[in-house]
């Protein structure tokens, strides 16, 4: 579903992402880990077609993002970090706008899409409220609703549980798990338990390079008995 081939991104003289390659298959939930500034968000933004890679490419569902970004964007749902949205719109208005832009021109089809997204993310109670008045947890859910509105084959989630309380985190995780069977999901996170809880694969990225690409079990087996964050620390500070 997603094939990432040697992605490189330079910001001026600084190389933020340095030859990242991996593949994600249908049914995979890939946990994308790494210290702040390691290049997680940049890599994700390149896969979504928002940033143009300096070199390399990503192929999403058979479409090369450097050649046909719009085709990739059609097939992909993306939750950007901190879930930006047009704050002055109500939840329902905003989702209707997303649906219309995503090509649901028919009013009935659009309403059905919006209803489905609202139900999936439990936004019924705030549907007529302006997004800027919502709490962080609800805003995050609006971002979620927007990302999965068109039932995309690929979901890219940048810190989907950031800022949520434990109940909301649990809910978001079960939602991701529920949807993942027929999708390829990439999610970035700082929370190592999250990886254990839902991910089928772990990639750790440090200084723009992939340092680990394995299953959570293999990751844990690196140092039996050690806590996950200890393993993470030893992998991401050793070469710093």
């Amino acid at each position: 579903m997603i094939e990432v081939n040697g992605l490189v991104k330079n910001y001026g003289p600084k190389r933020a992402v340095d030859g990242v390659s991996f593949t994600v298959r249908k049914g995979d939930i890939l946990g994308f880990l790494g210290p702040n500034g390691a290049g997680k968000s940049t890599t994700m933004k390149m896969i979504t077609g928002f940033l143009r890679p300096t070199a390399g490419t990503a192929v999403v569902d058979g479409h090369d993002v450097t050649r046909d970004p719009v085709a990739v964007k059609r097939r992909l749902g993306y939750l950007p970090e901190s879930a930006p949205a047009y704050g002055e719109m109500t939840v329902a208005e905003f989702l209707a706008f997303i649906a219309e832009t995503r090509g649901y021109r028919d009013a009935a089809a659009r309403r059905e899409r919006v209803e489905r997204a609202i139900n999936l993310t439990h936004l019924e109670s705030v549907r007529a409220q302006a997004i800027e008045t919502l709490s962080k947890g609800y805003k995050q859910r609006v971002g979620f609703a927007q990302a999965l509105l068109h039932d995309p084959a690929v979901l890219i989630l940048d810190e989907p549980t950031d800022g949520l309380d434990p109940n909301q985190k649990h809910e978001v995780r079960s939602l991701i798990k529920k949807m993942a069977a027929d999708k390829a999901v990439v999610l970035s996170t700082h929370i190592l338990e999250e990886v254990e809880a839902i991910c089928t694969r772990v990639i750790i990225i440090n200084h723009g390079k992939v340092v680990v690409d394995e299953t959570p079990e293999q990751f844990r087996a690196r140092r039996p008995g050690a806590r996950l964050d200890e393993i993470f620390r030893s992998l991401t500070t050793a070469d710093a």
Binding site: G49, F50, V70, K73, P80, S82, P84, A85, T101, R102
Partner: peptide
């Protein structure tokens, strides 16, 4: 940050 949203729509 909505620019990121807008430019990940088709």
């Amino acid at each position: 940050g909505t620019v990121e949203l807008l430019f990940t729509l088709p």
